[in-house]
Design a binder for these strands. Sequence first.
DNA 1: TTATATATCTTAGCAGGTAAGATAAATACA
DNA 2: TGTATTTATCTTACCTGCTAAGATATATAA
Lengths: 150, 150
Amino acid sequence: METDKVLHLRKLSQQYAFSALQMHEAIARNAGFSSTDHKYLGFFIKHGSMTAGELAALTGLTTGAITGLIDRFEALKLVKRTYDPRDRRKVIILPNSKRIQSLLEPFYRKFQEETEKLLKEFSENECIVLEKFFEKSIALMTKTFTTVNQ
Amino acid sequence: METDKVLHLRKLSQQYAFSALQMHEAIARNAGFSSTDHKYLGFFIKHGSMTAGELAALTGLTTGAITGLIDRFEALKLVKRTYDPRDRRKVIILPNSKRIQSLLEPFYRKFQEETEKLLKEFSENECIVLEKFFEKSIALMTKTFTTVNQ
DNA sequence: TTATATATCTTAGCAGGTAAGATAAATACA
DNA sequence: TGTATTTATCTTACCTGCTAAGATATATAA
């Protein structure tokens, strides 16, 4: 790809990220969550259970913030605190993924449908291009995040 | 594209959005901005000057929050309040895009370089695929945001 | 056993958000 | 024209959720 096109696509990818961010925040507000809480609900669905410390490390939040976050989610019965019998200091956060999903789903349904419709427009080969781009970009952003986040 | 692949790609696109979000927040913290402020600095670079009310409408923040946001940026000389001579109630926010860019650039340099390197791996035709995906997705997310954000 | 390290929680203080009302300027209309 | 209404932004009071630092409880090391 030529330099001009590269710069154009880089801009587009920035704009994509910005739009995603805007949309997620708007949906969070609508669903009655703070932007942070909404973000980590998705995180739970993806990762399943983890300890409070792991969550703090992954998110870059302090342990104090994590305590508050778990408290809020627990009050809504979206997660449950359990304790590691082998190390009773540890708090294992057990998400109720179904309940989380069913709570968020109404707000995403239309968007997800339309995303799927959009993706169906792409051919098998085009799909591979997108896949390659996503995978490499995700790796790059995760690396950048990890580097910066210490 | 087949249904299976569609679902896989939808997941990837979600993960992409999440990674972008994480990275942006980490960079914001590093650069000494709140996540919101960082987000809107990029917004200013992209859109140029606008009125406080336009910014409130575009962001979904209340006018009170916008007043605070402009105050913070003005204190850092990143934007300047000017007044519309034809309607003196209006506050026109004049961003100092160069200063904003030079402030953020160090934190993005490496990432942008690597993104460009990654994009160079794609052919002309593949570039068109990515472009199409981005443009349509951005339109879709913007529509979703606008719908939800009222 | 005692010291140290680790995982999470608690507390105090702060930053930035909202809602509601204040202010000032523009517009509409009798 | 003068008065009422609307509009754009700012101010204020209050609230939420973050950090930093220290407390607590448990695990590990010496």
